[in-house]
Design a protein around this nucleic acid. Sequence first.
DNA 1: TCTTAAATAGGATTGATTCCTATTTGTCAA
DNA 2: TTGACAAATAGGAATCAATCCTATTTAAGA
Lengths: 150, 150
Amino acid sequence: MQNKEIARRVRLFIETCRRHQLKITPQRVGIYRVLIQSQRHPTADLVFRVVKKEFPNISFDTVNRTLSTFAEIGVLDVVETFGGPKRFDPDITDHHHLHCMACGRIIDFEYEGYARLEVPKAIATTFKVISRRVVLKGLCDTCTAKQQMF
Amino acid sequence: MQNKEIARRVRLFIETCRRHQLKITPQRVGIYRVLIQSQRHPTADLVFRVVKKEFPNISFDTVNRTLSTFAEIGVLDVVETFGGPKRFDPDITDHHHLHCMACGRIIDFEYEGYARLEVPKAIATTFKVISRRVVLKGLCDTCTAKQQMF
DNA sequence: TCTTAAATAGGATTGATTCCTATTTGTCAA
DNA sequence: TTGACAAATAGGAATCAATCCTATTTAAGA
């Protein structure tokens, strides 16, 4: 990601914080910068270890609390998992997920065919849908290859 | 659920265990019986507390390990969550989920319109899809009502 | 500046899961 | 039916994740 693009997104992020009456702290900006440059779907611990390089005194609690705050104001998503630590997704645009059941990898994909997953009428009346996602479980290519070795 | 239906499913379950060279222990059968009669999506701890009534000496580890074993042989599903303890689903037929972001409730639904979620060709070549599910995040009626009180 | 509520650091606590090991038990073959 | 053995269990210890607690620091508006 270009420095220019990072700066642009940080500016937008700061806007969002202000709109929600959140103080702009160096820790929050640092965490946000790590997040948007991280490999997809990091855990709080992973973010913590990376941020620690820039802020050696930062605590895990701050990172974790901050990530939850970011989720609340819509700066990131908590993604669905099948157990294990929470995982966060800085990509809040519509997309779908493949979950490898063997290695736990989550792979993003976009697909025109799922673009308008209409919500059944019966549900729309009793449930307020905020986001929709197709989750495909299975085996990624690496794990399929490994299985065939036996 | 009728006793007859339970007996039928237990027989099928025992078949499945045999196919996978798993021993038929009273604990496994007990856990399976609790599972198919439980409210949907119980945690290991919930299953443990119920099974404990019939097997006072059973350990949490046995319940938890057994549930994982059941998932491996396809007797149940581990369902997607957004953090918190693992949750298991005895309903392995195709269905979809609503997740209430406020109370964490998971509501099953079936929908004709999602019946044939075709897998994009580009993905089918590199990823072996085993199950597909639409996950809708939002607010259930109870939580929507609560929010409007403020 | 000054004030104040919000945020942070760091350690303690809680909760969930897995690991370890001695003991028990289902299964299969004799 | 019995004996042998690998698999499974019980119970406690250890690990990992998340949250709580509180003294201290800090961002932001007056």
